[in-house]
Design a protein around this nucleic acid. Sequence first.
DNA 1: GGTTTGACCATAA
DNA 2: CTTATGGCCAAAC
Length: 120
Amino acid sequence: MPGEPRVVSEGFHERVYDVVRGVPEGSVTTYGDVAAALGSPRVARHVGWALAALRDDDVPWHRVINSRGQISGGAERGTLQRALLEAEGIAFTAAGRVDLRRFRWRFGLDDLPAAPTPSR
DNA sequence: GGTTTGACCATAA
DNA sequence: CTTATGGCCAAAC
C-alpha cells in the first residue's frame, strides 16, 4: 500500500535499530550477532553501516562492537564508546577489549545452561 | 546500472 | 600475536 508515513526509506536499518534497542544496559553485542538476529549473518558490515547513519536516535550504538570484543570506528567514537560502556558497567581488558564471554548479549537466549567450556 | 566502499567476519599462513 | 585474502550485501558515487 502506497503512501508511507515514514520519512526515511528504511528497510534494513530499522531492523538493526530494533535489535540494538533490545540490548539491555550492561551488555554488549557484536555486528555479526545483530546481523544473525536479522536472519543474515553476512550483513555484519551493514549493521555498522546502519549505525553510522545514526544521529539522534535512541539507539545504544555504543553497545555494538566487533567479534574481537574490540571497538571499531574512528578513534573518537572508540573513546566515546568505551566511556559509555564503562559507565554501564562493562569491563575492559588491558588490551582495551571487552570480555565477550560475559558481556555478550544473547538475543533471548540469556538463559543458557552455563557455558560448559570456561576456556575460550 | 556498474564501480567503489564500508563502525565486519572467518580462515589461512 | 599480526598480516593477507575472500566473501558478503546494501548504500553512495
